[in-house]
Nucleic acid binder design. Sequence first.
DNA 1: TGTCGGATTGACTGGTCAGTCAACAGCTCG
DNA 2: CGAGCTGTTGACTGACCAGTCAATCCGACA
Lengths: 210, 210
Amino acid sequence: MTPSRDVEPAKPVQLDKRRMILDAAVVAFATRGFHACRVSDIADEANVAYGLVYHYFRSKDEVLDTLFLERWDVLLEVIAEIDAQPLPAREKLRAIASFIIESYRHDPDLMKVIIVEVTRAANSFGRTHLAKIREAYALIADIVGKAQADGTFRTAVTPTFAALAFYGAIEQVLTGWIFDTLPQGEAEFDQAKAFIVETICGGLDAAAVR
Amino acid sequence: MTPSRDVEPAKPVQLDKRRMILDAAVVAFATRGFHACRVSDIADEANVAYGLVYHYFRSKDEVLDTLFLERWDVLLEVIAEIDAQPLPAREKLRAIASFIIESYRHDPDLMKVIIVEVTRAANSFGRTHLAKIREAYALIADIVGKAQADGTFRTAVTPTFAALAFYGAIEQVLTGWIFDTLPQGEAEFDQAKAFIVETICGGLDAAAVR
DNA sequence: TGTCGGATTGACTGGTCAGTCAACAGCTCG
DNA sequence: CGAGCTGTTGACTGACCAGTCAATCCGACA
């Protein structure tokens, strides 16, 4: 109809097809879930032929693997960087919670896929990545351990356990947002960062003098 | 070979086939995972014909639904009972953590199925049961809320949020046991009960006087 | 003993997809 | 210009499995 109807102005033509497939997969997996999502859904979403997915990836699984590893490695690096800074442990934990929540704010679909299809799906996909996932726990535990050694944190609980509780709180909050169980928005994101740290570090007890 | 080889001494013949199918499904789902488990696996495990599963249940899904609801309803009742007792909030939380962990100690396979295939699988099965799952959160939040009202707990964090963190810690620990990421045994079970409450109620900070 | 209805059986069907493959397009370089 | 490579296409196949169903079994009751 219009003279230039073949041009797509809003969607600039992506040239890296591999990247296009990965990005399309994020949308497809987030929308329908990994199992319910067919490879043709990914191809359609990417505006690419079915077979091309198999040119760039060995299998549907490998697409998810790639998405997960790409992002999880960034997380591991960031945690390590945060730990390297001269901050009190509480601030380090806050920075980690903040990074994860910001990741969600920035790309909810990607985080949904990673959390729902990998991290929380320990039976299918998580199995493969258990070790990678645990690396994050270990880094967090390390932060707690060092804080206990220098007296900043109490030793009532093992570092491993504290890391579990900390990560567990973050995952629950993200899951709540992902499935619309919790209200989400700028205010809630910031509140969550504060609450996670406050719960894990400060505890619920009114007890003694604070 | 032996005269009485047709008699099974250790495995007394179950008469309620429906129950047999449910119990077999627990084993089958726990071993292979819900998706990878075929209906014939359940039937085989139950020593029952394939079609009988469909005599008692409308679908494979309904088998899992049944298992989940049976158990989750017990959990909800127990939490309500605990809340009704005249205990300090911290003790109530301890009792809840204890009940869940004892459930795992008593029947790890069943808890594995419920946690892995329903609770943590919010995308497939959890979707259906989100409301039921949230009832548990609400009960816990209520305990926290009342403790905040009477001054036992600080108000730094909303009850909803505290419930999330509490349940998140429990789920992480169970997940760790389920996938052999954490050591498990009598000692660990008791330690976990204490640590969960200690982390959530006591917090990590050494801060002030305790 | 015969009839009826629920319990039980397992072969079969229909639909769904992941992954294959043969063909085609378009670029580069000799 | 043409040989050879990489990128791209989409129809097709093979496997898998949930759910169906017609047949058989068996106990209760008349």
